[in-house]
Computed example of a mutant assay.
Amino acid sequence: MSNVLEHYHYLHEIPELGFEEIKTSAYIADQLEKAGLKVTRGINNTTGIVAEIDSGVPGPVLALRADMDALGHIIDGVPCARHTCGHDGHSSVVLTAAQELLKEGAVKRGRLKILFQPAEELGAGALAMVEGGAIDDVDMIFGFHVRPLEECVVGQAVPAVLYSACSTLEATIKGQPAHAARPHLGVNALDAAVQAVQAVNTIHLSPGLNWSVKATRFLCDAGVTNSVPDEARVVWDLRSQENGPMVLLKEKVTQAIINSVAALGAQADVVVLKEMPAAEIHDEATAIIRDAIVDVLGEDGLLDTKTTPGSEDFFYYPVKRPGVKAGFWGLGTNLVPGLHHPDMHFDLNSLEIGVKIFKSCVGKVLG
């Protein structure tokens, strides 16, 4: 057996939020250096790491990417970080694969780069790695994600997961304060925010498109119960299976918010908190992953491509560097009750399968 479970158990116990993965990145970098890999820490002044295996023989440059950050939750009224998206599993798999590939001398041509990126949940980690030059010389990049039980079980894997574009918009709505006994002297920001939510709910794009928009946070408090509140903040989550419709959806949502609150005499400032692009996956990369899955799990373990309304900042790599061929696959893990659920858990035996699939991918490109 490999070291994947040892790595997982350690990383699982030290969850850290995006760009705060101090202990996580230190552990990973230390393990890579002990194995003999060349390691560069602090990519773009972040916790990002790039490790490298150079064969010394001309050939392509392949990258494997893992994300390191945990999610922020409020559990029993207490803010905390918790690994509820499986990034501890992702890092463990890619770390183990890198150690074994070097030990086995599996990189026989070209170079293998190992990327451990921060802040995937913030939608900013991949951008930071790109801006730090992590993939300037990369020809192909592979990433993966553990999948929920309803999509994929242990012993199965998906060769391509088509993620959606996601944008998070926040509106700060300004009204006019007043005593609750004299509401005609004020502009109720709470009323305006409610109207904005209803206005966004009336938006329609073509029924042929795969999209959604919904309010996910509503904050408004005058501090007392007998005053008209003068400020409210509302957050909306926008999803689109394609990048083009997302541009139109953001425009429609922004105008719906601004116009609806203006009808009540309020004003709205709308900003984008974060966004991630829809999947851009290369056929050649997917074919390599498909063959690797069959090598490890047989034809019965190979599933069809999956489409998901979830989002992944991995796709900034091919979007920002169009020449890079990207592949992104899904690993069956019997994950329940769901990603981002505070009690998310999965079959840890699946991680060994992930290591083997990644090693097979590397062998096909650099072997």
Rank of each mutant, 00 (worst) to 15 (best):
A278V: 04
F358I: 00
H7F: 00
N210L: 12
D237P: 02
E52H: 10
E284P: 06
P148N: 14
R290C: 07
D304A: 07
A193M: 11
G223V: 10
R82G: 08
E104R: 03
V319R: 09
V194A: 14
V158H: 09
G367P: 15
G186T: 04
S167R: 13
D191K: 08
H9A: 04
F116G: 01
K364N: 11
R239C: 08
I74V: 09
R321F: 14
G367V: 13
N188M: 00
T172A: 14
A196P: 04
K356Q: 10
P337S: 13
A165W: 14
F328K: 14
T172C: 10
G301Q: 09
L101A: 02
D291P: 04
E299F: 05
L149K: 13
G110E: 13
H12V: 00
A189I: 11
E312P: 13
M68T: 07
A119M: 11
G186M: 11
D291I: 02
L264G: 08
L297N: 04
H7Y: 06
A199S: 15
P183W: 00
L115V: 06
E121V: 09
E242T: 06
F314L: 00
A63V: 05
G36H: 11
T254S: 05
W329Q: 04
S55E: 01
V107A: 14
G77Y: 12
A51V: 02
Y163W: 15
I75G: 03
N259I: 07
V194C: 15
V57N: 09
S25W: 05
V50P: 00
E284C: 11
L122E: 03
V57M: 12
K325R: 15
Y316D: 14
L17R: 06
I49P: 00
A171Y: 09
F218W: 01
H9R: 07
I43K: 04
V39D: 13
A189M: 02
S240R: 02
L248S: 11
T84N: 05
Y27M: 10
K252P: 00
I293M: 04
G105I: 07
G301H: 05
P159F: 12
A268Q: 05
V93R: 02
L127Q: 07
A292R: 07
D343K: 01
A266Q: 13
A266T: 13
G265Y: 11
C152P: 01
A268F: 06
K113V: 08
M140E: 09
A97K: 05
Y316F: 15
C80E: 14
G244H: 01
R217T: 08
E275S: 13
S92G: 14
E33W: 08
I49C: 00
L112K: 03
R111Q: 10
H90Q: 15
L297H: 09
H145D: 07
S91T: 06
N3F: 06
K306Y: 11
E52F: 06
A119L: 13
L17Q: 12
A192C: 13
L62G: 00
V336E: 12
D76R: 06
A192W: 05
L190V: 08
Q198D: 10
D221M: 01
T333N: 03
A199E: 03
A106L: 06
T225S: 02
Y27C: 08
R217V: 03
V94Q: 06
E104S: 11
I14D: 06
R147I: 02
G354W: 13
D347Q: 10
F218D: 05
D304S: 04
V153W: 11
V94W: 04
D76F: 06
K274V: 08
